[in-house]
Design a protein around this nucleic acid. Structure first.
Lengths: 126, 126
DNA sequence: AATATCGGTCTCCAATTTAGACCATGTCAT
DNA sequence: ATGACATGGTCTAAATTGGAGACCGATATT
């Protein structure tokens, strides 16, 4: 993202600003995974399954930056780093929950729409 | 996305499947823009402002595919193509609205968190 | 010794996104 | 008649982003 894509009229547009952050491949998924409680880096990595270390590290750093998660380092060997939702992060789970419910309820409709599209529109093309 | 990243245990995981679609740079923004009613391609392009033609076209095609928006072509010259939310698309606006409200309410907290991060954590590094 | 754990970072390569040219067609002003 | 403009895209080349896997330092385990 260019440094100030989210700036409109000299002020950040809240919606754009927030959507730009959580609207990526992984943020929502990480947040959803942390709903289950404090977790270590490698636990997140394994639970999510198909995220790369690099992207998990980046996503967590941005979520930390924006105050959604807190990062705690334990100076042990081997190192231990725990990630946990902040109050802000937890408050975000509520609207997100609504989205997850919606997804559950309407998933079939989406799958059906895809099939219709593949059969009716795709062969002829636009 | 590899063709079947969203397939888990031989069945699509609804949450992953839906989040993978709407969780991209542009889908939520396009949907939010269409909340205002039926719009033509170039109107969307101008209202969103910093999306490229190609990405708008792609995003709209996927939203159409998944049944969120309907596409109507008027065989005029110059061509006219209108995009409008379907019932499914409109039903999605409700949980999304919750997200938008949340963003409005908590935007300041996020901005504050960023400043804290920049001042406290960034200089020392991790 | 070797090997594994842990939380990353780094490099290299593949995939995605962007900017911008281009297209066909018809209307409007010169 | 000629040129500019509008529309809804698509195509290409260049820039950005993402993934796979090597690597690290310190210690415990085999």
């Amino acid at each position: 993202m260019p440094p100030d894509k989210r700036i409109v009229f000299e002020q950040p547009c809240p919606i754009r600003d927030v959507l730009d952050r959580i609207g990526d491949q992984w943020s929502l998924l990480v947040l959803e995974t942390l709903r289950g409680g404090t977790k270590r880096f490698n636990v997140l990595l394994r639970e999510i399954g198909d995220i790369s270390k690099q992207m998990l590290a980046r996503t967590l750093r941005r979520l930390e930056q924006d105050g959604f998660v807190a990062r705690t380092v334990f100076p042990e060997v081997p190192p231990r780093v725990e990630y946990t939702l902040t109050d802000l992060g937890r408050s975000f789970l509520e609207p997100m929950q609504a989205l997850v419910f919606w997804a559950d309820i309407h998933h079939q409709a989406i799958v059906a729409a895809r099939q219709r599209y593949d059969q009716v529109i795709a062969p002829g093309g636009h």
